[in-house]
Design a protein around this nucleic acid. Structure first.
Lengths: 178, 178
DNA sequence: TGAGCGCATTAACCCAAGTTAATAATCTGG
DNA sequence: CCAGATTATTAACTTGGGTTAATGCGCTCA
C-alpha cells in the first residue's frame, strides 16, 4: 500500500476553526496530524504560566507529539488553529504498523521524521549560536509569509523574546538598514 | 536480518583517541556512528568563530549528521572525542536499504529517530522556556555524570552561556541552596 | 458610531549575562 | 619536578532584553 492510500484508509478529516485546539498539554493523543489548509501554532505553557511558541505549522506539514504518540506519554505542548484549518488525523500506531508491511510507507515515515529532525536541528542551532536580533533577521529571511499572518507577539514568543523586546529589535534592525 | 547482525555486517569499528575528530563541519559524511565506549561532543563553530555545543554523546547512543546523511548535504557541525572512544560506523544508506527488507531493522531505526527527536524536543523546550540558571539546574539533575567528566567551559557552551556566566550562575545556585 | 478590546510602540528602570582582564588553581609534557 | 598551558574565579564595566506602565491605533460588534 502506498502512503496516499494509507492516509485515505486510516486518516480522519478534521475541521478546526480558528482558536480551537487540536490537542492540549497533558492530553493523551497518539495521533499525527497532516495539515491540509490553514495555520497552526504549537506552544508550551511553562510552570510560571508563560507561553512560548514551539513552531508554526503550515499546509503540507505534519504535527503531533512524537513522545506522546510513540511512548504513550502525555502531550508536552498545545496545538491551536490560528486560522480556520483542515487536517487529517492519523493514529500513530497505524503508521508504525504499516511500516512493517510497506516499504513505501516506511520510506515516507522516514522522510517525515527526517524533515522534523532537520527543522529542530536548525532551531537548536539558532538558539545556541544566534542572538535574538539574528534570529529575527533569519526569521524574516526564511518565513516572510508568516510575518504577514502571525501577530508580532506570537513571533516574539517564537523567537524567545517578549513582545516588547521584539518591538525594540525591529526598530533597531530597520533603522540600521536604511 | 536483525539489527545486531546488520551492524555487524555493514558497520566498521572505529577507534577515536581523545581530541581526534569523528567528522567536521563541511565534511561530506553520510554515516551514522554508534558510540560503544568513551565520550564525544558535537559542536558548532559559528560565523563569528565562536564555539557552541550541540550535545554530548555517551555510550550506546548514536550520532551523525542526519541532514548530511539523508539529503547528501555537508555536515553542519563537528564531532570530537573528549575521551578515548570506540565507535561503529554505519553507512546511512545501508540502514535505509535495510529498512526495506527487515521489519526489525525498520523498528529499530524508527526507535533511534524517535529517541533523537525526543531529545531535541526537550532541548528546544529548555531554550525556549527556561532561563540559563534553570537550564543549569536541569543539567545537574539529569546529567550528574557529565558534571564530572566535562569541563565547566564545555558545560557553559552547552547551556548557551559563556564560561564566566556559568561561574556566576554556579555561585548563585550553591549559595542559595545552603 | 462609539465603547471596549487586543495589539504594537515607547519610556523608565532593573538585572542577568557578555566582555575584558587579572589572578588563582590545575593539568600536562618534557 | 618544573614551565607553560589550560581552566576556573572574580571584578569592573557595558549592554540586551525583561518588567511595568502609559499611550495610541485599529478592530469588532452591539
Amino acid at each position: 500500500m502506498n502512503f496516499e492510500d494509507l492516509v485515505k484508509k486510516v486518516g480522519s478529516p478534521i475541521v478546526c476553526p480558528k482558536q480551537r485546539h487540536v490537542f492540549r498539554q497533558g492530553d493523551d493523543d497518539d495521533n499525527l496530524y497532516l495539515l491540509q489548509q490553514g495555520l497552526l501554532k504549537a506552544y508550551y505553557i511553562g510552570n510560571d504560566g508563560r507561553e512560548t511558541i514551539k513552531s508554526f505549522i503550515q499546509p503540507d506539514n505534519v504535527i503531533g507529539n512524537l513522545g506522546a504518540a510513540y511512548a504513550h506519554e502525555a502531550c508536552t505542548f498545545n496545538v491551536v488553529a490560528l486560522q480556520d484549518s483542515q487536517l487529517i488525523r492519523i493514529p500513530f500506531k497505524q503508521l508504525i504498523d504499516a511500516v512493517k508491511d510497506s516499504h513505501e510507507v516506511a520510506q515516507k515515515v522516514l522522510a517525515i521524521l527526517m524533515s522534523l529532525s532537520i527543522k529542530k536541528e536548525r532551531r537548536e542551532y539558532e538558539f545556541l549560536s544566534l542572538s535574538a536580533e539574528e534570529r529575527y533577521r533569519a526569521f524574516c529571511d526564511t518565513s516572510p509569509q508568516l510575518l504577514e499572518s502571525v501577530t508580532q507577539s506570537d513571533i516574539a514568543l517564537y523567537l524567545g523574546v517578549t513582545p516588547v523586546g521584539l518591538s525594540r529589535i525591529k526598530k533597531r534592525v530597520h533603522q540600521n538598514n536604511k
